[in-house]
Design a binder for these strands. Sequence first.
DNA 1: GCCAACGTTGGC
DNA 2: GCCAACGTTGGC
Length: 151
Amino acid sequence: MVNYWLMKSEPAVYSIHNLQQQKQTIWDGVRNYQARNFLKQMQIGDLAFFYHSNTQPPGIFGLMKIVEIGINDPTQFDPNSEYYDPKSTLESPRWQTVKVEFVEEFSQPILLSTLKDKFSGDELLVVKKGNRLSVIPVTELVAKSIMNMKN
DNA sequence: GCCAACGTTGGC
DNA sequence: GCCAACGTTGGC
């Protein structure tokens, strides 16, 4: 069974175009336990919407696929990284993540304003007021609907 | 730049 | 375990 997710990134830091060029990347830097728990639930083959946050306009700009799971986020051990976590140890790492692969960039991005028109906060967490999670699950029904909207 | 809505930290 | 203070996210 394929699960669907939505993963946020600030395009000024890492955009769908960066992923398109790199083909694959380790999704590092998530430092929120709830988001991490969703990362741990991911399975190889799952699909994730690439969401551009903190930009104008915000929205879903493409699709990616989970190709590797259970990766220890390397930046937690790197004192030079802004994501360094001195409380994390090699014996029991705190932060796990996944490797994602570029699938497609949407020819027409699905903007947050559109998502707000189409879905309620209960249907899709990203339109819920006050939502701050950078990794959220998306139901199959909503995912299919989004896939239709991009055409 | 503002600020609402969180999550985290740390004293007690 | 409580909760005040503080930090962060992210749309606007």
